[in-house]
């Protein structure tokens, strides 16, 4: 990939065209669009109802001790809205090249006179645009149904943290794209990573709960959790939006860490993808189903 201004503009155009194509294809399946916009509410609601069953209201004293805020409803609404980006990185970007393989169009795409990363970036960009729409609908619907109480004045800072997380997730998407191109059958791998992230990251419960629940081992589980960009992003976003939230990671540390993992995951993703692509081409297995 050339680094002069003219080439960069052309690569950017390739990425935007890919993103447009992907969005267009997605909009051709309106049922799926409705599904992804509304279904996350069905996944969030059981947690709200479980909360009501266990504590009898929307405030929990134990939650306040662990997270500073006793409002577990807003806590989980923020968590599930951000989790949508993880699902998009896994099932969208991660699977994007596999879908081209299924459609028999991967070889054609790989011989296009542009960088592979522009194509992958375009696919990730379309996922981010669609996910932002889904997350916004989900947040609005959840707030309407369950009542989210956030500090609107900090929304700009929260969105900035989310943007940083999206970049880090692009890196994870690249890593998964490479692995799936190499090993083909992605279902089990994606399901495993998805469930692992959901369990160890503070989507529905504060990070300190891991220490309370697992005892001494909890600290190490929390360290595993912090490897995923979702954890520092959730800590930062909740610190900005959730009144009286007491993060496990200081906001400045969370943001610096997020910037660092963004760099690491993007570099690692690009390196891994380049190596895998060369290997797969040499084996002549680009289009092998």
């Amino acid at each position: 990939m050339k680094l002069d201004a003219a080439s960069m503009i052309l690569e950017l155009k390739a990425a935007v065209s890919t993103a447009r194509k992907e969005i267009l294809i997605n909009l051709r399946y309106p049922l799926w669009v409705v599904f992804w916009a509304i279904m996350p509410i069905f996944w969030l609601a059981p947690f709200v109802f479980q909360g009501h069953a266990l504590v009898g209201g929307r405030l929990s004293e134990s939650f306040r001790e662990l997270a500073g805020s006793s409002d577990y409803v807003t806590f989980t609404i923020i968590g599930s809205s951000l989790y949508a980006y993880v699902m998009s990185a896994l099932w969208g970007t991660g699977l994007s090249l596999r879908r081209e393989q299924w459609g028999g169009t991967l070889e054609t795409i790989l011989i296009a006179p542009c960088s592979r990363f522009s194509i992958l970036f375009g696919k990730a960009l379309s996922d981010s645009v669609l996910t932002t729409f889904y997350a916004a609908v989900q947040f609005a619907l959840a707030s309407l149904l369950f009542g989210a109480r956030i500090r609107v004045e900090n929304l700009f800072f929260a969105v900035s943290a989310v943007l940083l997380m999206i970049l880090a997730l692009y890196g994870i998407g690249l890593i998964l794209s490479g692995l799936i191109l190499m090993y083909r059958e992605p279902g089990a791998l994606l399901n495993f990573v998805d469930t692992l992230i959901y369990t160890v990251c503070p989507v529905n419960y504060p990070l300190r709960t891991l220490m309370l629940f697992f005892g001494g081992v909890g600290y190490y589980v929390a360290m595993v959790s912090i490897v995923f960009p979702l954890t520092p992003a959730l800590e930062a976003v909740r610190a900005f939006l959730l009144p009286s939230f007491n993060p496990y990671l200081n906001v400045a540390i969370a943001l610096s860490y997020l910037a660092a993992v963004t760099l690491v995951f993007l570099t690692l993703g690009m390196l891994l993808f380049s190596v895998v692509e060369k290997k797969v081409r040499r084996r002549g297995a680009v289009e092998a189903y």
Binding site: V55, S60, S62, Y72, F213
Partner: peptide
Amino acid sequence: LSLVIYGRALVG
């Protein structure tokens, strides 16, 4: 596990 940890966070 995620449901049980969530329960622990809620009631301690």
